[in-house]
Amino acid sequence: MHARLRAAIGAVIVSLVAVFAFAGCGSSSSTSTSTSGAGDGSSLVVYSGRSEEYVGPALAAFTKKTGVTVDVRYGDSVDLGLLIGEEGDKTPAQVFLAQSPGAMVYLDQSKLLSTLPQATLDKVPATFRADDGTWVGVTGRQRVLIYNTDLVTQSDLPKSVFDLVKPQYEGKVAVAPSNSSFQDFVTAMTQLSGEQKTKAWLEGLAANGAKAYAKNDAIADAVARGEIPFGLVNHYYFNEIIEKDPNAPVKVYRFPGTDPGSLFLVSTAAIPAPAANNADAVALINYMLSPAGQAMFVAEEGEYPVVPGVKQATGQPSLSELAYPTYDLSGLTDLRQTAKLIQGSGIGG
């Protein structure tokens, strides 16, 4: 029995060694979503609600410039915001990048974000950052309606986003209800037009057979192939379609005036409280706000720069020409409430 015991204990020890030995080499060999540093050894954990396609190149350029390795967890902005909320002090995230302000405002209210250095905040106009300095805007995007020109004529275009619940749009509109840009748009609409009207609009959309898609990309694809005539997305998804297929029968439409449908949102960056004042984290945000970083976002997908003086993408109205409604960002507090409002409307996810 003693020999058997020894063999058994040996087995357990070997298995533990195997786990930890691998854990050691595994985390250093995961280069795919992490960018390899030049070798000063420091590394940064980033939670990104923006997809790798969009922020990957900027993160890689940052690593190349500074030698800081970046390990990224990609996901949905709302999900990652709620995740940091659940993780609290335990969050490994040192920088949080989100598609829109909603997740940041939520975390700020929960006291889970640190205050950014004033020099970083000053790079961005006050309208594009938190009043209390816990997050900054990184890039700007406008909510638009894209449509398939084979299926839609000019005269079919709605005057307001509220028109989309009318019978003539039955089964013709694509939305991405679980996407954080859509959720922030709904929150802002609640502020601009009241909760009753927003709720009625969402329920109207559901009753009118609006189709739910997982992501804006999927909506763009669906509109391009004529699966559905209209789609509510961020403006740069139009650029993406044209990039894939210059002859795609798709056009972009901005609701006139200060319609909630033409909301202007910023993608955002923040440093969670446990990583307060982390030099690498601050350096990453500063890099994204540098002229070089901003230029990358503009070139990649035609987002609007938030730093004054950076050149805008051609072929779209300039930031100063854009008409959009203004709303109180600090009202974007309850992620769960908006998500439940959307879920409860029956529009699906």
Binding site: S32, V72, A93
Partner: peptide
């Protein structure tokens, strides 16, 4: 999985999610 760790399966997944 830890941040920055991805397998072939999660790569297929994330690329498909954004229609790449």
């Amino acid at each position: 999985s830890p941040p920055g760790f991805s397998t072939l399966a999660t790569r297929v997944w994330s690329a498909a999610e954004v229609a790449l």
